[in-house]
């Protein structure tokens, strides 16, 4: 076994399944929507589920135990040489310096379709649509530049209870093709919540669940958290979701327009969580260095158009930065995270 070989949370090795190319997100969403419908049809009481709001599990106590597919997807020989335009569009949109260096958020964009492919597998136990993105934890260990040929792997692991349902980690790793056995140069763990699903609780689960961020509905009422003095303010236009959708390929309807978002129970379109996290990462700027850990926890969605107050503050005890974004008017937290040089 080489270091970094995918394993389940329990450490069991996974079967690696190679795909010829990175899948396109558009097709995946169609499949994801179909799979979500299938899962809903198989598990829900008629009339109860509303796509996009998770599912109710009342009366669903007899469902089969949830298990993750024991497979990791892998694509090798992913070229980046012809991505210059796409990369630069991304960098301009996210306020990154426009260079040939792929920022961590861009690598997330590259790897995300493969992780999504895992989630739309027929044996993936949770519905893609309606999953809530809770958190992300990314490590970038060095420069990835245009021209590097990459190897991308993705799998799901660590299915565990959450007080509102179950959460699962989607892990993606990026290696340089030239160094297949080395540690991944980029590794991202995206934590999703599927509301209304159950897992048997263990004491260890309870512990980990306590650490998990609350989702929006569980947040303490505004007022108990006092916003710091902002260091920045983002005025996000109504097209923010469409713009990030265009560069990331993530055209989840909840991001695209007020109308499509309403269909999923949001009053307006909401910004991609990774857009906000990547903006915060860009706000840290040069001080993050070439290798860094970048985490984010999402607390409440950012409605579009909207204004987000942001505080990006150096860690007084170390080289890292903490950031938090909130709604200046209502003092409601949207996200928070850290960027720590490695």
């Amino acid at each position: 076994m080489t270091a970094g070989t995918p394993a389940t949370g329990a450490g069991e090795p996974l079967r690696v399944e190679s795909l010829a190319t990175l899948p396109g997100l558009g097709g995946l969403y169609a499949r994801g929507a179909a799979a979500s419908g299938r899962i809903a049809a198989g598990r829900a009481m008629p009339g109860l589920p509303v796509i996009g709001q998770g599912r109710s599990v009342e009366g669903d106590g007899e469902a089969a135990p949830l298990t993750l597919p024991d497979v990791a997807y892998q694509v090798t020989g992913v070229p980046t040489a012809d991505l210059a335009h796409h990369l630069h569009d991304y960098q301009r949109l996210l306020h990154e310096p426009v260079t040939d260096v792929l920022p961590a958020g861009y690598l997330h964009v590259l790897a995300f379709p493969l992780a999504t492919a895992v989630m739309v597998r027929g044996d993936f136990p949770l519905p893609l649509l309606g999953m809530v993105h809770l958190a992300n934890d990314v490590e970038l260990r060095g420069h990835v530049v245009l021209g590097d040929v990459l190897e991308v792997r993705a799998w799901a692991e660590n299915l565990r209870p959450h007080k509102r349902g179950v959460q699962v980690d989607l892990v993606a790793e990026v290696r340089r093709q030239s160094e297949p056995d080395a540690r991944p140069v980029w590794r991202g763990v995206s934590t999703y919540l599927a509301k209304g699903f159950h897992l048997p609780w263990t004491s260890a689960d309870a512990e980990s669940s306590a650490d998990a961020p609350d989702d929006a509905e569980d947040r303490a009422p505004a007022g108990t958290w006092t916003a710091p003095l902002p260091t920045g303010r983002w005025a996000l236009g109504p097209g923010t979701g469409r713009a990030y959708g265009a560069v990331s390929g993530d055209r989840n309807p909840i991001h695209l327009s007020a109308l499509s978002a309403k269909a999923f129970g949001f009053p307006r379109a909401i910004a991609h969580g990774m857009y906000t996290a990547a903006r915060a990462l860009a706000d840290v700027g040069h001080a993050r260095g070439d290798a860094y850990r970048w985490t984010v926890e999402f607390a409440s969605p950012v409605l579009l158009p909207g204004t987000v107050d942001v505080a990006v503050t150096p860690d007084p005890d170390g080289p890292g930065f903490a950031y938090v974004g909130w709604n200046g008017g209502r003092g409601r937290q949207h996200f928070r995270g850290t960027v720590t040089p490695l």
């Binding site: 902002p230 260091t231 920045g232 001080a287 505080a311 150096p314």
Partner: peptide, 9 residues
């Protein structure tokens, strides 16, 4: 002179 205001320092 210039100050590092970007991160509120």
């Amino acid at each position: 002179a210039a100050v590092d205001f970007v991160h509120g320092h």
